[in-house]
Design a protein around this nucleic acid. Structure first.
Lengths: 196, 196
DNA sequence: TTTATCATGTAAGTCGTTACATGATTGA
DNA sequence: TCAATCATGTAACGACTTACATGATAAA
């Protein structure tokens, strides 16, 4: 299973609606978990039908209503069982498109690789910048108690600090790595686009 | 798409059978791409039916026969198109179970987190050890020309060196990060299992 | 007036995992 | 003799993505 426990965990702490869960994933813990809205809504419904979540409609003027989900007692139990269960895997299957392209670098020539490394470094700069700030959900959604609570889950929490520290350290390393590779590519005795 | 181009790329360089492709993924570029055998076989068949791959049976005494696949001209063209196409995404969706558990660390207590960090560090030691060696396919499959060729794809190739260097640097960083976190957890004023 | 944000969903399709089936050979 | 390695597959399921549909308000 997957998304499943991310939802049960979050909704064990605070009630949220689908849209705010998506925002939390993207803004606060984007280095940890990703999910599309459509998947979130579907999964929320499935968990409610299993009795692990319950939902209520929150009326809003000026805006569409929200369906707030929260974990039931059974949902909390199910989550805690998972959280304390030992069979955990560290090696999540990797499928990295950039790395795959790099593997075939000698077939495309160094110019392509150089261009992609420069884009990669740009991207990592953005990641690094974001990882320093932590979550800014409360700022982006002022006077929304749901977002404020979701934000607070991460602020002042040691484990969230660990997560952001990891994102910062990893992006730092990847920038160094990419610059190293780029330097080697640029020092190449410029031949006319071919094998390495 | 995904596995798709990994296969076309590999089979543009050298003919391989399903089993050896799996071995190449796992042994030589496990930080880049992962796939189950069943998926590889299914995808190979699909690509052959599209005319992007062709296959021949290689007879063997003492062992089951091999079905060797290679990219057709159309397959090679299709692959090169992809390789030189700009719309590349660096942000592959992340779903990291260990990190997700860590996010909810304050609900499980520091002892659980400590245990998992120690396991994580063990795992990363193994990753680091492996990333130094590069691929050892030729050693594991002596007198198999398919494996020898697959292995050679990576040896002496600058881009493969880049890949292994990244794996080495990343595992190094992750070990440092985990040790840092573990130290902070161990310096905690031992309370009886509860909130942070 | 058009675009962006907020908000919830459905449907179809692709991608990936797990379980099962088969069968020979080699090494412990 | 039992497990592991080599080798190829099928079937069923589960997870994830993409495209579509709707509709309000706020800002450019």
């Amino acid at each position: 299973m997957s998304l499943n426990y991310a939802l049960l965990g979050l909704l064990s702490i605070t009630p949220m609606n689908g849209y705010s869960i998506k925002a939390f994933f993207d803004e606060a813990i984007n280095s940890v978990w990703h999910a599309e809205l459509s998947q979130i809504y579907r999964e929320l419904e499935a968990l409610e039908q299993k009795g692990l979540l319950s939902s209520t409609i929150e009326q809003q003027r000026d805006r569409p209503n929200k369906r707030l989900y929260r974990a039931t007692d059974e949902g909390k139990r199910s989550f805690m069982d998972w959280l304390s269960s030992p069979p955990l895997k560290f090696d999540m299957p990797k499928r990295d498109e950039f790395m795959l392209r790099l593997l075939f670098g000698s077939m495309a020539g160094p110019e392509v690789a150089k261009k992609e490394f420069r884009l990669f470094i740009d991207q990592m700069w953005r990641v690094r910048a974001r990882s320093g700030e932590g979550s800014n959900l409360a700022a982006r959604f002022p006077d929304d108690p749901v977002m404020a609570k979701a934000d607070q889950v991460c602020r002042d929490d040691m484990y969230c600090r660990f997560i952001h520290r990891r994102a910062a350290m990893t992006s730092e390393t990847l920038i160094a790595w990419a610059q190293e590779c780029l330097a080697e590519l640029e020092s190449l005795p410029a031949s006319g686009a071919g094998k390495s």
